[in-house]
């Protein structure tokens, strides 16, 4: 004799939904946090994406990819700066690498002095 068919999980959930519909009040929802900010009904359509940037071959040929181990807060700050600069410059891709490059260039003299033991 075949064993009785075990009700599936989906079937059980359907029964649970029917039961939930019959119950009076559900537990009050308590969101983790709330930042509802529905914008206007019809936001402006997205502008066309910026075209692919021309590859700076001379720069890429002289560059290396690496990883940095820095505090999250510092990385977050660098990202915010990258986003702010990208927005100022027309919405291209934010680049933390560019921010770091510019920071190094701005401090190059002092860094080179230190590297030379000064």
């Amino acid at each position: 004799m075949a064993p009785p068919k075990r009700p599936s999980l989906v079937g059980a959930m359907k029964a649970a939904k029917d039961a939930a519909g019959r119950t009076a009040q559900p537990p009050e929802a308590a969101p983790v946090a709330s930042q509802p900010s529905p914008a206007a009904e019809t936001p402006a359509p997205l502008a066309a994406p910026p075209g692919p940037a021309k590859r700076d071959r001379s720069l890429s040929d002289r560059s290396a990819t690496t990883a940095l181990h820095i505090p999250r807060e510092q990385l977050h700050l660098l990202r915010l700066v990258a986003v702010a600069r990208a927005n100022r410059e027309g919405g291209g891709r934010p680049s933390v690498s560019n921010v770091l490059r510019e920071l190094i260039e701005a401090n190059r003299a002092a860094l080179e002095r230190e590297a030379a033991g000064g």
Binding site: A12, M13, A16, K17, A20, T23, P26, A29
Partner: peptide, 9 residues
């Protein structure tokens, strides 16, 4: 599940 469903709906 019933409580979970009610909370969402």
């Amino acid at each position: 599940a019933a409580g979970w469903i009610a909370r969402i709906t």
